[in-house]
Design a protein around this nucleic acid. Structure first.
Lengths: 177, 177
DNA sequence: TGGGTCATGTCAGCGCCCGACATCGCACCC
DNA sequence: GGGTGCGATGTCGGGCGCTGACATGACCCA
């Protein structure tokens, strides 16, 4: 993973072969593909923990909490876990932003996050459509908040960015019609 | 495009080679790749018109309209254009749902739609963050509405599905905190 | 000492995708 | 009517992503 991030940063994702990543890590190309299902996946190792963390937060949220608040609280929690890794997040985000297929993979991970959040909400008794829309909104807030966070100075926290996006969303929907 | 949809439906996306699609269409594999940047793209030809239609609707929306209403109205307009092609949409959606990499590409197209909508809103004077969040929400409504539409009976229109999702979103954000 | 398991290496091969060049039909125009 | 250019297509070769099958070797355990 470290070898990949270095090489992708130095000369770009497409200009780096899987063989080169493997060689820098001291293994063969075949071994690389035993650990990562494809060349892009090496940049998305942490997504599993992110997902299970969010699902856990939703499952363990207090009763009588509104669905949208459950999801955004879970996102806040995830954001706090990511706060110490800001430099890594910035470097990784730059690599992802520079390549369409990596961006594509990131969207797939976010969509999986949304689906898992919706499923967890539904498991708490939230109706299907409400759960889906709340999860979609929460992930949107997380996504836009993440972009703002990595683009801002170090004094701005991820949690603050998420809070700002959520407020913006509330204002927009309140002004509807 | 027709050859691809047929073959992907019959035996699946991964079990079909680009060469086979090309041969059924009466051209060489090389010619296939001159028209489509990759094997998946053959299922996403219409996305360009969808995007320009949405951007046009946003740009031409009446002044003093709330951002979220502008976006959802644009989505409604797109939905009405897609209504006559319901059978095609259903077949295509089944193929996409059956393959992760096609789903991935669909998410990329929706993200491009969101980015274009945000840009169009921003061009109307809507502040950056508001434009981004409104576009994200509008695309979420479109996406969830689409899934409900293709899963429902023919008496339910795409526009109705979108309306229902939007209402759900409003209810959720209104119940926040 | 022998056997079992797990990680890794080796090798061959398929399919995606591309660059470079050849071919061919077709409009245009002197 | 015969060049002439151009756009679409075919041909060829090849790099790279990714996989199945088998071999090797380290380690643990009886």
């Amino acid at each position: 993973m470290q070898s990949a991030l270095e090489l992708f940063t130095e000369r770009g994702f497409e200009q780096t072969t899987a063989l080169e990543v493997a060689q820098r890590a001291g293994v063969t190309e075949r071994t690389f593909f035993r650990y990562f299902s494809d060349k892009r996946e090496v940049l998305f190792e942490g997504s599993g923990e992110l997902l299970s963390g969010v699902v856990g937060a939703i499952t363990g949220a207090p009763v009588n909490m509104a669905p949208i608040d459950i999801v955004t609280a879970a996102m806040q929690e995830a954001a706090e876990r990511m706060e110490p890794n800001r430099p890594y997040s910035i470097q990784r985000a730059a690599v992802v932003a520079a390549n369409a297929s990596l961006h594509e993979r990131e969207l797939l991970k976010l969509d999986a996050l949304s689906a898992a959040a919706a499923h967890a909400l539904h498991g708490r008794g939230v109706p299907e459509l409400a759960a889906t829309m709340a999860a979609e909104s929460g992930v949107s807030v997380f996504k836009v908040g993440f972009d703002t966070w990595v683009g801002a100075g170090p004094e701005v926290t991820f949690a603050q960015c998420i809070h700002a996006c959520l407020d913006e969303l509330k204002g927009l929907t309140a002004a509807a019609q």
